[in-house]
C-alpha cells in the first residue's frame, strides 16, 4: 500500500509543479510581448526617413489587402440584404432591409470581417517576413550594427497596420452597403428611396460609424502586434516560421472575436 501512496503523492506534486512552470512561462511570454509592444510603438530618435518606411508598409499591408477586402465587403452586403429581405418580408417590413444591412455591417461585420481578413492576408505575411529576416540573421546583423530592429523594422509595420485596418474597414462598409443596395433595389425591387431613407433614419454617425472605427483601431493594434511578435519570436527554422505563421492567424482571429465581445459591451454601455 505504501508505495502507491508515495506514487500518487509524487504525481500530484509533479503535476502541480508543471502547472506552475507553465503558468510562469505564459506570464513571461506576455511580459516579453508587452515590452516588445512598448519598444515597437516608438520610433526612437536619430532614425531618419520614418515616413518613407511607413508609406512602404501602408502599401504592403493596406493597398495589397484591398482586393480581398473589397470583394468580401461586396458579397457580405449582398448576402445580408438577401437574408434580411426574406425575414423582413414576412412582417411586411422589407423596406427596413437597408437599415438592417447598414447597422449590421457598420457595427459588426465591417470591423470584424475586415480584421479577420487582414489577419489572414497581411498578418501572416508579416510573421513570415520577419521570421525569415530572423532566420537569415538579418535582425541580428541590424542589432550588431547598432540599429534597433524594433524601431527600424517593427515600428513602421505596427503603425502601418494601425493606419491601414480602419481605412480598409471603412471601404469594406461602403462596398457592403452598396452591395446590399444592389441586391435589395435592383434584384428584389425595394424602392431605392426607402432603402436609403430607412438607413439614414437609424444609422448614427458617432454611435455606429465612429464606434466601428474605434473597434477597427483596437483590432489593428492587436492583430499587428500578434503578427510581428510571432515573427520576432519564431524559431529560426522553416518549421518554426510556418508554426509562427499559423499561430498568428489562429491567435489573431480568436483575439478579434473575443475582443469584439468586450468592445461591444464597453461601447454599448459606457460611452
Amino acid at each position: 500500500m505504501k508505495p502507491s501512496g508515495v506514487m500518487i503523492h509524487h504525481y500530484l506534486l509533479n503535476g502541480l509543479r508543471r502547472m506552475g512552470i507553465n503558468a510562469l512561462d505564459v506570464c513571461a511570454g506576455f511580459g516579453r510581448a508587452s515590452w516588445f509592444l512598448l519598444q515597437s510603438l516608438t520610433w526612437g530618435k536619430g532614425f531618419k526617413a520614418p515616413f518613407a518606411r511607413l508609406v512602404l508598409q501602408v502599401y504592403q499591408l493596406g493597398v495589397l489587402s484591398l482586393p480581398i477586402i473589397l470583394v468580401a465587403g461586396l458579397f457580405v452586403g449582398m448576402v445580408l440584404a438577401l437574408q434580411g429581405y426574406h425575414v423582413l418580408v414576412g412582417y411586411g417590413s422589407q423596406e427596413a432591409v437597408g437599415q438592417m444591412v447598414a447597422l449590421s455591417i457598420l457595427r459588426e461585420f465591417g470591423p470584424v470581417m475586415s480584421a479577420l481578413l487582414f489577419a489572414g492576408r497581411a498578418g501572416s505575411a508579416l510573421t513570415a517576413e520577419i521570421g525569415l529576416m530572423k532566420a537569415t540573421e538579418q535582425l541580428s546583423a541590424m542589432e550588431i550594427m547598432g540599429v534597433d530592429p524594433l524601431k527600424r523594422i517593427m515600428a513602421p509595420r505596427l503603425w502601418g497596420g494601425i493606419i491601414c485596418l480602419p481605412l480598409l474597414n471603412l471601404m469594406f462598409c461602403v462596398l457592403g452597403i452598396y452591395g446590399g443596395a444592389l441586391v435589395a433595389v435592383d434584384m428584389l425591387g425595394i424602392y431605392e428611396g426607402s432603402y436609403w431613407a430607412n438607413m439614414q433614419g437609424s444609422v448614427e454617425f458617432y454611435g455606429d460609424i465612429v464606434k466601428g472605427v474605434i473597434k477597427s483601431l483596437v483590432f489593428a493594434l492587436v492583430v499587428t502586434w500578434i503578427a510581428i511578435f510571432h515573427g520576432w519570436n519564431a524559431q529560426p527554422t522553416s518549421q518554426g516560421i510556418s508554426r509562427a505563421t499559423t499561430a498568428t492567424v489562429v491567435q489573431a482571429s480568436l483575439a478579434i472575436l473575443a475582443l469584439d465581445f468586450v468592445l461591444t459591451a464597453v461601447l454599448l454601455g459606457g460611452f
Binding site: V55, V58, Y59, G62, V63, L66, A102, L106, I163, C164, P166, L167, L168, L170, M171, C173, V174, I177, W196, M199, Q200, G201, V203, E204, F205, D208, I209, V213
Partner: peptide
C-alpha cells in the same frame, strides 16, 4: 498608390457619413 489608398479610405468615411447616416 498609398496616397490613393488613404484618400479612398477618407472618401469612404465621407460616403458613410452622408449616405448611411444622413449627415
Amino acid at each position: 498608390g498609398v496616397g490613393a489608398f488613404v484618400m479612398a479610405g477618407m472618401l469612404a468615411l465621407v460616403v458613410l457619413a452622408f449616405n448611411a447616416s444622413g449627415f
